Measured scan of single mutants.
Amino acid sequence: KTVHVNGVQYDFDNPEQAERFAKEMAKKAGLQIQFHGDQIKIE
């Protein structure tokens, strides 16, 4: 899974790890999470 945070890309082999990371980042920055198939976007 790939997580995009403000244009920066983070790759994870483990989907659960990717989602946990995305939730942490979104919570910290007060941003929205969008799921697009294999990609998670935080903007």
Rank of each mutant, 00 (worst) to 15 (best):
K1C: 15
K1L: 14
K1Y: 14
K1P: 07
K1F: 15
K1V: 14
K1T: 13
T2N: 04
T2K: 06
T2L: 05
T2A: 05
T2C: 15
T2Y: 00
T2W: 00
T2Q: 10
T2D: 01
T2S: 11
T2F: 00
T2I: 10
V3S: 01
V3E: 03
V3D: 01
V3W: 00
V3T: 02
V3M: 02
V3F: 00
V3N: 03
V3L: 04
H4M: 14
H4G: 02
H4K: 09
H4N: 11
H4T: 12
H4L: 14
V5R: 01
V5P: 02
V5A: 03
V5H: 07
V5S: 02
V5T: 03
V5I: 13
V5Y: 12
V5L: 09
V5K: 04
V5D: 01
V5W: 12
V5Q: 01
N6C: 15
N6S: 04
N6Y: 00
N6E: 06
N6W: 02
N6H: 08
N6F: 12
N6A: 08
N6R: 04
N6P: 02
N6Q: 07
N6D: 09
G7I: 04
G7T: 03
G7A: 02
G7Q: 02
G7Y: 00
G7S: 07
V8S: 06
V8C: 15
V8H: 08
V8E: 08
V8F: 09
V8P: 04
V8Y: 08
V8L: 08
V8D: 06
V8T: 06
V8K: 11
Q9W: 10
Q9V: 10
Q9S: 09
Q9P: 09
Q9C: 15
Q9N: 08
Q9A: 11
Q9R: 14
Y10S: 02
Y10H: 07
Y10I: 11
Y10V: 07
Y10A: 02
Y10W: 04
Y10Q: 04
Y10N: 04
Y10P: 04
Y10L: 06
Y10K: 03
Y10R: 04
Y10E: 02
Y10C: 15
D11C: 15
D11Q: 09
D11N: 09
D11I: 11
D11R: 01
D11W: 14
D11L: 08
D11A: 04
D11T: 10
D11G: 01
D11Y: 14
D11H: 13
D11F: 13
F12C: 12
F12Q: 02
F12R: 00
F12N: 02
F12L: 10
F12Y: 02
F12P: 04
F12A: 03
F12S: 02
F12E: 05
D13G: 02
D13Y: 01
D13P: 05
D13M: 05
D13W: 01
D13Q: 04
D13F: 01
D13A: 05
D13V: 01
N14I: 05
N14M: 05
N14F: 08
N14L: 09
N14D: 14
N14P: 00
N14C: 15
N14V: 05
N14S: 12
N14H: 05
P15Y: 14
P15M: 11
P15A: 13
P15C: 15
P15R: 12
P15K: 12
P15I: 13
P15F: 13
P15E: 13
E16N: 04
E16Q: 09
E16K: 06
E16W: 06
E16D: 10
E16S: 07
E16A: 10
E16T: 08
E16Y: 06
E16G: 06
E16I: 06
Q17K: 03
Q17L: 11
Q17C: 15
Q17Y: 06
Q17A: 14
Q17F: 08
A18G: 03
A18N: 04
A18Q: 01
A18F: 08
A18K: 03
A18L: 09
A18S: 03
A18H: 02
E19N: 06
E19F: 04
E19I: 14
E19L: 15
E19H: 09
E19K: 05
R20K: 11
R20Y: 04
R20C: 15
R20F: 07
R20P: 00
R20D: 13
R20G: 09
R20H: 13
R20L: 10
F21Y: 05
F21P: 03
F21S: 04
F21C: 10
F21W: 08
F21R: 01
F21L: 07
F21N: 06
F21M: 06
A22E: 09
A22G: 05
A22Y: 10
A22C: 14
A22V: 11
A22M: 08
A22L: 12
K23D: 13
K23M: 07
K23A: 11
K23T: 11
K23N: 12
K23R: 09
K23W: 02
K23H: 10
K23F: 03
K23L: 10
K23Y: 04
E24A: 07
E24N: 02
E24V: 00
E24K: 00
E24Y: 01
E24C: 15
M25D: 03
M25V: 10
M25F: 02
M25H: 04
M25G: 01
M25W: 01
M25A: 08
M25E: 10
A26Q: 09
A26W: 00
A26K: 02
A26S: 07
A26L: 09
A26E: 09
A26T: 01
A26R: 01
K27H: 09
K27C: 15
K27Q: 11
K27F: 01
K27W: 00
K27D: 12
K27S: 12
K27P: 04
K28G: 08
K28V: 13
K28I: 14
K28P: 03
K28S: 11
K28N: 11
K28Q: 13
K28W: 01
K28Y: 04
K28L: 13
K28E: 11
K28D: 10
A29R: 06
A29E: 13
A29H: 15
A29S: 12
A29I: 13
A29G: 10
A29L: 15
A29C: 15
A29V: 11
A29D: 11
A29M: 15
A29Q: 12
A29F: 13
G30W: 01
G30V: 01
G30M: 05
G30H: 09
G30D: 10
G30A: 07
G30C: 15
G30Y: 01
G30L: 02
G30I: 05
L31C: 15
L31M: 12
L31G: 08
L31W: 02
L31Y: 04
L31T: 09
L31S: 10
L31F: 08
L31H: 08
L31N: 12
Q32D: 14
Q32N: 13
Q32M: 05
Q32Y: 00
Q32A: 11
Q32G: 10
Q32P: 04
Q32E: 14
Q32R: 08
Q32L: 10
Q32V: 14
I33P: 11
I33L: 09
I33W: 00
I33T: 04
I33C: 15
I33K: 01
I33N: 09
I33F: 01
Q34C: 15
Q34K: 09
Q34Y: 06
Q34L: 07
Q34W: 05
Q34F: 08
Q34G: 08
Q34T: 07
F35S: 11
F35P: 11
F35I: 14
F35V: 14
F35L: 13
F35T: 12
F35H: 13
F35A: 12
F35D: 13
F35E: 13
H36I: 14
H36A: 11
H36D: 15
H36T: 08
H36M: 12
H36K: 02
H36W: 14
H36F: 14
H36V: 13
G37F: 00
G37E: 14
G37M: 00
G37Y: 01
G37R: 00
G37C: 15
G37K: 06
G37T: 08
G37H: 04
D38W: 00
D38N: 06
D38L: 03
D38Q: 03
D38F: 01
D38R: 00
D38P: 06
D38Y: 00
D38C: 13
D38V: 02
D38S: 06
D38H: 02
D38A: 04
D38T: 06
Q39P: 07
Q39V: 14
Q39H: 11
Q39C: 15
Q39A: 10
Q39M: 13
Q39L: 12
Q39Y: 12
Q39D: 13
I40T: 06
I40K: 03
I40V: 10
I40C: 15
I40S: 05
I40L: 07
I40R: 01
I40Q: 06
K41F: 15
K41R: 11
K41H: 14
K41Q: 10
K41V: 15
K41T: 14
K41E: 11
K41N: 11
K41P: 09
K41A: 10
K41D: 11
I42Q: 06
I42N: 07
I42S: 08
I42D: 09
I42M: 10
I42R: 02
I42P: 09
I42H: 07
I42W: 01
I42L: 13
E43S: 10
E43G: 10
E43K: 06
E43T: 12
E43H: 07
E43D: 11
E43C: 15
E43V: 13
